[in-house]
Design a protein around this nucleic acid. Sequence first.
DNA 1: TGTGCACGCTCAATCGTTTGATCACGCGAG
DNA 2: CTCGCGTGATCAAACGATTGAGCGTGCACA
Lengths: 335, 335
Amino acid sequence: MKRSRVTLADVAALARVDRAVVSRVVNKDATLNIRPETRERVLAAVEQLGYRPNVAARSLRTARAHMFGIFVPDFANPVYAEIIKGAEAEAAAQGYVLVTGSATGAGLGGYMDRLGQGRVDGLLLAGAGGESGLVEQLDRAGIPWIMLNHRSRSVRRSVVLDDERAAALAVEHLARLGHRRIGHLAGPAGADTATRRSAGYSAAMRDAGLPEGPIVAADYTPAGGAAAMATMLAAAEPPTAVFVANVASAIGAMEAVRKAGLEIPREISIVAVHDLDLASYLFPALTTVRMPLAELGRRGVTLLGRLQPDEAVAEVLDGPIDLIQRRSTAPPPTP
Amino acid sequence: MKRSRVTLADVAALARVDRAVVSRVVNKDATLNIRPETRERVLAAVEQLGYRPNVAARSLRTARAHMFGIFVPDFANPVYAEIIKGAEAEAAAQGYVLVTGSATGAGLGGYMDRLGQGRVDGLLLAGAGGESGLVEQLDRAGIPWIMLNHRSRSVRRSVVLDDERAAALAVEHLARLGHRRIGHLAGPAGADTATRRSAGYSAAMRDAGLPEGPIVAADYTPAGGAAAMATMLAAAEPPTAVFVANVASAIGAMEAVRKAGLEIPREISIVAVHDLDLASYLFPALTTVRMPLAELGRRGVTLLGRLQPDEAVAEVLDGPIDLIQRRSTAPPPTP
DNA sequence: TGTGCACGCTCAATCGTTTGATCACGCGAG
DNA sequence: CTCGCGTGATCAAACGATTGAGCGTGCACA
């Protein structure tokens, strides 16, 4: 219920020492030579007054905010929620706090404006599309930033998931079940993740000695997935299994399969990238590839804390990727 | 790629005015009398140097951080994601930025510690359970705070949704379909929302002239919902329709119904509170009551900005509540 | 020819911490 | 007896913006 704020000076007065001493005690300055009893007096005063350092004053002096920013397209997308969770955990471990912003708020531009100067020590961009001028805008702000799960020539710092391995896991699973006509519902043309998942699909098919099945591009949305799957099923010889680049597309794809009068997994198997809670609530429960999304957020924060001002990085995250088998995949129908 | 930071003094020097003028121009101080040409000079200098105010210095001087904190149990829960979206939109409109924290990070205690003093101008607590000592801890920090969707005698500031009306909408929908035995999968005993939804259920049943059906408490989780629904179905005369207090419980409840060999909605109807995207992906698509979650977040931020230091508030949000009819409700079976 | 006032600025104190420099004191060595 | 040094502190200058008070013009009015 303290209304009047307690400052270093108050503590110093009560402990009968200089503010400098209090500052060094509070910050556990190792170079400080102090008598144990004095330290005790200081700590007691801190305790008694309920002193909490003023972060604005500290930031002003040290030019560090002890905050990181993270910008996502949409909080309601569980993929980004996982990334944020990981980022928050690592930030907390470093004593940092997270300033979140989303495209549903006022966009990246508005977010950066409100951030002003010196508010955050670094910025994490998750799933930012290739907005033109974005890189310039970011660099002009003079804030170190890292892009998550997206890379391009203009992005000097990025961490991405191993989408190729994820795709391989999915394809291998289907091939092991006996499928030979394995289609691919790819992501949208512009998306970097889509490119990498498609590359992984192609490589895995080649490794399995299978001809690349039909490939149709789809938005990362249920509607996009439904349309693409309808197209795929209308072909002369539809696949017996489909690797879908994204779980959102897969939801729509399943709907399209149902509409076409086919049964999952008896007549067609489906496996998608990203294991979200909702995958297990779908009917039938969706087989997925689990990506280390939280780890991606964690790694981003770690790098933000570690990187030197002009150090570049392009990392493929070395985290666990697992196939989560549920009910949507099974051996192909025997003709 | 500006590395050296631009300060007010730099701008002032370039524009050949005092720092004070620059400050007042930048902040659009209405009391400032200035010649248009001088203002132009200042703005041009700001532009040319790419000046952005240092938020630490500003916060130190004004004792306002232009940040609000928001603490949620879990980012991955779409209910909180919606609340955050609303809060962010309103915060952005006020020129504020949001510092998020979750229980999955380092808990409320850790979050508050990292917040220090003066980092945020106010704190929004969403869905915080009744942790003992929490209110004292919050008050001791001297930060204005508002609890969302939960109230108790020790909480002086809260905004809650109109859960009673939501329950009434659901019950009326079922009654209008012809159901007479309408059960209730209530929330956990401790939860404030559960209490209010149950009260709404009872009132609506009374209004409809129906006897209160079986009531079973369930955690707000799929597992909790499944167990509770199993119990309910095992009774002598199971209901033909169930009002479930939470969409997560409903997911489990639907599973339990399937396991019991009953068909939704032909043999039993289900309606739940909270309309999330995933509700439409369930099988069958779940009829829900849509609550203005984003509006709740928005309102919280608005109040944080408006309330006087010792002003209390206990508000029931007056936002739109709608029944979203999908496939999980239908008239009762004709015996 | 003063007086008063509005205009268009400038001055300088202040916010609370951090941190390099400095200082008093006592003690051991020469 | 004095010099030097380690110990355990203190001093004071930043950090960058805000803001109430002050100040010099020039013009209007008496």
